[in-house]
């Protein structure tokens, strides 16, 4: 027992926890009466803390529920957005058939590109903000379109 100093509580704790593998320390602990007394006290502490263990398990449907939240189903969202977008153009044709013809014949193609850009931006946005936001925005667009075209029809007779 003279070759090594007596161990402190933290080192004894590490030996009890199986975290200290220095043979000389464990050997000293096994043979030193003073350290044995300390070991008993530390072992009591470890035993008390072991009471924190719980045997509770997750419900069997946990993984299934998790996958339901993980699996993204972009198709219905994209489809719905596409339908709403189509509705915008369709409503334009019905409310003012000459409007779309004029639109294309005049050659304002960059506006078409802009609309498609916005459409795809909204799809990307929906991935980040959720489908509800893109549906709300597109529904608002449809409503605004219908309102404007209705006004135009009234004005043009």
């Amino acid at each position: 027992m003279t070759d090594i100093q007596c161990l402190d509580e933290v080192t004894i704790q590490a030996i009890i926890d199986g975290e200290e593998t220095d043979i000389s320390l464990t050997k000293h602990l096994d043979n030193c009466p003073a350290c044995q007394g300390l070991k008993k006290q530390v072992a009591e502490l470890v035993k008390t803390s072991d009471g924190l263990r719980i045997d509770a398990d997750l419900p069997p449907e946990f993984y299934e529920n998790l996958m339901d939240r993980i699996e993204v189903r972009p198709f219905p969202i994209a489809l719905l957005a596409a339908v709403l977008f189509g509705l915008v153009l369709f409503s334009a044709y019905f409310l003012n058939p000459g409007y779309i013809t004029w639109w294309f014949t005049v050659g304002i193609t960059h506006q078409v590109g802009l609309i498609f850009d916005i459409f795809f931006d909204l799809l990307v946005l929906s991935q980040a903000l959720g489908p509800l936001s893109v549906i709300t925005v597109l529904t608002a667009l449809v409503a605004i379109e219908v309102l404007i075209l209705n006004k135009l029809r009234v004005m043009e007779g």
Binding site: E9, V10, Q13, V42, E44, L45, V46, T48, S49, L52
Partner: peptide, 8 residues
């Protein structure tokens, strides 16, 4: 170690 003492 301190946590174990505290708990006890």
């Amino acid at each position: 170690y301190r946590g174990r003492i505290m708990l006890k």
